[in-house]
Amino acid sequence: MNADDWLRTLTAELHQRRVAADAARHVVAEAATHLREGGGDPWVVFGPPQQYAGAVVESIGTAPGPRPGPVRLHAAGITKRYGRRTVLHDATLTVRAGQIAAVVGANGCGKSTFLRICAGLISPDAGEVTVSGQLGYCPQSGGTADFLLADEHFVLVGAGQGVARGPARRAGRAAARQLGWEAGGDVQARHLSGGTRQKLNLTMSTLSAPDVLLLDEPYQGFDQGTYVNFWDQLSRLRDGGAAIVVVTHLLNQLDRVDIVLDLTPAQQAGWHAHGVQGGHL
């Protein structure tokens, strides 16, 4: 990571930790000046950007986050069985506009199933889900067409909302750029790398400006920079009033979310029952 990458990561970290925009700009400018004039490796001078951002937050505090808005997603008493195996038991989650919820848990504990139930793709055995506004969903894999170009995916999704081709293409490319990807080429989806394909997948789900965005481990194959961009974009969408649910097994990202739902069964984890856990962090 060179100095520019370090500064970029620091900027994203400060933004995600909700440091006031002016203060963040000032901190980054000071660090850049220090590096330019004094030289040296930023990792040696300042340490890891995440750690430095943490120190900045401790020192100057954060800007108050936007107040959560009205409830956008309410899933209550969700139970799902496959044969005799109960995958989900009475899981409940409420997410308001301007919040990010993380769904965590061990492999096979029903994280993806819960998200698919929230998206209305499969039915639960019990429980109900109420969604206010437009719903967007990004599957863990698949969800793209091998032989179509990225632009054609944008046109296809845009047409569902009645968006004309030109604006759909432009919106798709702009959303892809937020993830550090220039999507305008003539490469078919099957020739994209795994990470870039996931960027396409993610871009498609945000294209219709959903009020509720459901993301099933969408960052598989992302490199470090894209991963930072991904959380940066989630923060932007949250600040724009979206309610976001993201399935994740990366517990180190939980400090960036507002609500945690841990689906690990009690007997497996030894410390968590079903349902909403955590709450506001």
Binding site: D146, L156, V157, S208
Partner: peptide
């Protein structure tokens, strides 16, 4: 068969 994974998300996208 190839469209099986894509169709649910197109349904959510307004189709």
């Amino acid at each position: 068969t190839a469209a099986r994974e894509l169709e649910p998300r197109l349904r959510l996208a307004g189709y």
